[in-house]
Computed example of a mutant assay.
Amino acid sequence: MGHPKNGTLLLASVIATLCSLSAISKPAEAASLYKGWNYAIDSFNDSITGNNVGGTKYEIYGLALKQTEDKVFIAINANLPLGGTQSNYADDGHVGWGDLIFNFSGKNLSTASANSNLFGIRFASKNDSGVAATGVYSQVKAKTVAKANGIALDSLGEYNEWVKSNGKKPSIGDLGANDPYFNQATHVQNVIASGKKVGDINLLSAANLSSLGLDFGHFDANGSQTIGLSADRSLFPDGNFILHLAPDCDNDIIALKGKLDIVPPESATVPEPSAVLGLTAMGLLFGSSQLGRNKQQKALNSSAS
């Protein structure tokens, strides 16, 4: 007869292997990842308006991004409405949101911009962007419109020093206030200067964002406005990026570091590792069972002869 104990031991071994490999294949969660969203949380007191520092109408609290197989979702928590705000300091009496600027190049912002190697999203229809329509743009060169929108300070470095001199703490989300990614001697490039439109965006309601699991409150980011949008995943490259955002006046800035994963084409769907391992385990068990039957049959034939 065969040995059922051997089959039981093999099954236990296969199950243990599956469990260990399944645990290994789980992705590690970054500290800023929550419910599928990657968050950058900014200092809550480093915006300015006039002589006021911290908690102003330009304060940005958080920036978040979520990726699915076919969409990229972006959300902003701040005090500035989508339509912007009236300002006595701006040349045209209005300050809007700047554009979302993506950098996948691995270079600093100035270098990537000079080479038109950025991606950008104009999401606010009333701002000082250099492109005419809202949407997603590639081959982007960026520029700053801070001076025309009323900022009195001459550079990012001066901005940081002004915030600190008023007892507040400047930061740029996932980047430090003095991070060399930005040129400290100039204002941050905050809108698209030129680029090629490659697709459209959809603005999202609070209900849409909630259904997607967005929760800035988990990080105590409770600005009065939450703005959300989505765009097709296929409009963006794969890989690591830095995404930054500021109002037209650069009176607060936030940056988010992240990665857009490779999405396999639909025609080349790769089975889940657990499924492959499961099929392998079934094959091993079937082979073991068949081997036992063969041995049992040989034993019967031998006794019959």
Rank of each mutant, 00 (worst) to 15 (best):
K295L: 14
A31S: 11
S305V: 06
F236R: 00
L204K: 01
L260W: 10
N222Y: 05
V270C: 10
A64L: 08
K197C: 11
L118P: 04
V140C: 11
G96K: 04
G292Q: 05
G287A: 15
A221D: 08
Q290Y: 08
L33I: 15
K66M: 12
N51Y: 10
P271N: 00
D92S: 13
E158T: 10
D99M: 09
S43Q: 07
S25Q: 13
V145K: 13
G195C: 11
N222V: 13
N77L: 07
L109I: 12
S194E: 15
Y39V: 14
A206I: 14
G258K: 01
L10S: 07
K295Q: 09
A30K: 10
Q297M: 10
M282F: 15
S305H: 03
S138A: 14
Y61K: 01
M1D: 12
K197A: 13
N79F: 07
T134K: 05
V276P: 06
T56G: 08
F73V: 05
A78Q: 13
A90Y: 00
N127W: 01
I24M: 11
E69L: 14
N51I: 12
I253E: 08
S165K: 15
D248E: 13
K35A: 09
F236D: 12
G223K: 01
G135K: 00
G130W: 02
G54C: 05
F44A: 15
G157K: 15
G199Y: 04
T134N: 15
N251H: 06
L118C: 11
A193H: 09
F182H: 11
I192Q: 08
D174M: 09
F236N: 02
Q296C: 07
A30H: 04
S138I: 04
S171H: 03
G98H: 04
K26E: 15
G150D: 06
S305A: 07
N202D: 15
A31E: 00
G157W: 03
I60T: 07
D42C: 05
I101K: 01
D250K: 03
